[in-house]
């Protein structure tokens, strides 16, 4: 094959492909290599994997990760759909509310995390202060130190942070619903609830399927909020997979074990995404 009969398209994508190779393929291969070697670079087979899998914390971390991802995505979707539908109604001051709603999304993640950490603070946080003022609780709750409340609190922050994104997408989706459909359903005798259930949600389905995938991916690698608020504590109760990898690698300098965890996590995510595509993307077609 001479240079001449290579399709010109190849030349166009070549720079991007090289860049991708350097930034994605090389690190992936290098991680795979690290995961099967020891600190001296000698081949160590499955040892790193065995250590990672048998570590007592691994099951907890896996559970936490699933808890965090499912909790975040569910509440992001619920809040976002609700906000999107409400902001699609006509009311005075609608554009102002629409703009204000975007704030959580545009605030940098680290700023949001630090602010929430203060709000959740056991002694000085405004949340405990307000709840005690109103009389809902009689003594401060250690939101971020109590093993039972730390994950819900973090999920709440993540839901707050991302729901505006869902709302914006839902709003855009709703605006492409033809007005006559609402009118038809109204003439047929539907209430607002019926309109949501029989018109809006079915029409939003394709949008929601894509958003759910995005939210899942973002939650799966969402380090910022948890790492900056709790760092995975107390006692690993809010530790999720990506943070564990980070801690292993850059706090304990166990690069080979971190690499093994990365490979496991990669497989875990791949399985989830393939299952997701199978179930939803396939349904989309009919």
């Amino acid at each position: 094959m001479t240079l001449r009969n290579i399709s010109p398209g190849v030349w166009f994508i070549l720079p991007t492909m090289l860049l991708l190779a350097a930034l994605i393929v090389y690190p992936m291969l290098s991680t795979a290599e690290l995961s099967v070697t020891d600190a001296n670079g000698a081949f160590s087979g499955m040892r790193n994997f065995n250590v990672a899998i048998s570590a007592p914390s691994t099951r907890l971390i896996l559970f936490n990760t699933a808890y965090y991802v499912i909790g975040s995505v569910v509440f992001q979707l619920l809040l976002g759909i609700l906000a999107g539908i409400l902001l699609n109604q006509h009311f005075a001051g609608r554009s102002l509310v629409r703009s204000l709603m975007l704030i959580p999304w545009v605030v940098p993640g680290i700023v949001a995390a630090m602010t929430w950490a203060w709000m959740f603070h056991t002694d000085y946080g405004i949340i405990n202060y307000m709840l005690m003022q109103v009389g809902i609780i009689s003594e401060p709750i250690g939101w971020l130190t109590n093993p039972n409340t730390v994950m819900p609190a973090l999920i709440a922050v993540n839901a707050w942070k991302m729901f505006p994104f869902v709302a914006v997408m839902v709003l855009a989706g709703l605006q492409s619903v033809p007005e006559e459909l609402y009118e038809a359903v109204r003439v047929d005798g539907a209430s607002f609830w019926h309109e949501i259930w029989h018109i809006m949600l079915p029409q939003l389905r394709p949008v929601l399927v894509s958003i759910t995938l995005l939210l899942t991916i973002w939650a799966l690698d969402g380090i910022t909020i948890i790492y900056s608020i709790t760092g995975g504590g107390p006692a690993n109760r809010s530790m999720i997979f990506p943070i564990q990898i980070y801690v292993q690698a850059f706090e304990y300098f166990e690069f080979n074990r971190a690499a093994a965890l990365s490979v496991l996590y990669f497989l875990f995510i791949s399985v989830i995404i393939v299952l997701y595509m199978r179930v939803f993307a396939a349904q989309e077609k009919d």
């Binding site: 033809p178 006559e180 459909l181 009118e183 038809a184 359903v185 029989h198 018109i199 079915p202 029409q203 389905r205």
Partner: peptide, 10 residues
Amino acid sequence: FQSYALYPHK
């Protein structure tokens, strides 16, 4: 309706 406004998913 002019566009028929049939419920597309039903």
